[in-house]
């Protein structure tokens, strides 16, 4: 009994910890890709994509992500939406600025962006301090 419970507990703990990880909280569209990217694991753990919406305006992709600050203190960070065409090339990489965002503790904010041109069909949300 003890031998069965032990691996089960470890499995549950691993699943719980994976569920708390902020690096793959939401997925855009049906591409099955991670919505929030960051090289800063501390920031990524404190931020989560609560909801992700997208629509086409004219022929431009328009996205809105609801970010949630799970930390109890204010978070001051930058975010950027990187756009990619059908072939996986990043569209206008230098024209997409990092945008400032200050979020109060345990709050949500909507961030929005429009694709730079109609060739952008996929996107990634990046955050950094």
């Amino acid at each position: 009994m003890k031998a069965i419970l032990h691996p089960l507990c470890a499995l549950l703990l691993a699943a719980f910890l994976a569920g708390c990880s902020a690096s793959n909280l939401a997925r855009p569209g049906d591409e099955g890709e991670v919505a929030l990217h960051s090289n800063n694991s501390l920031l990524a753990n404190r931020l989560a994509v609560e909801a992700l919406r997208e629509k086409t305006v004219g022929d431009l992709l328009y996205v809105q992500a609801t970010l949630e600050n799970g930390w109890k203190f204010e978070l001051d960070f930058q975010y950027k939406i990187k756009w990619f065409d059908r072939d996986g090339f990043e569209v206008a990489p230098e024209s997409q600025p990092w945008r400032q965002l200050v979020m109060a503790g345990r709050s949500q904010s909507n961030v929005q962006a429009v694709a730079p041109n109609p060739s952008a069909v996929r996107y990634e949300i990046w955050v950094r301090e």
Partner: peptide, 26 residues
């Protein structure tokens, strides 16, 4: 520079999704 970049991005995003502009540029 950060102010300039934020302003330009916001203006272009706002303009591109404004419905009469979307219709006009269709």
């Amino acid at each position: 520079s950060t102010d300039l970049q934020m302003i330009a991005a916001k203006m272009v995003d706002d303009m591109m999704v404004f419905p009469p502009i979307v219709d006009m540029t269709r």
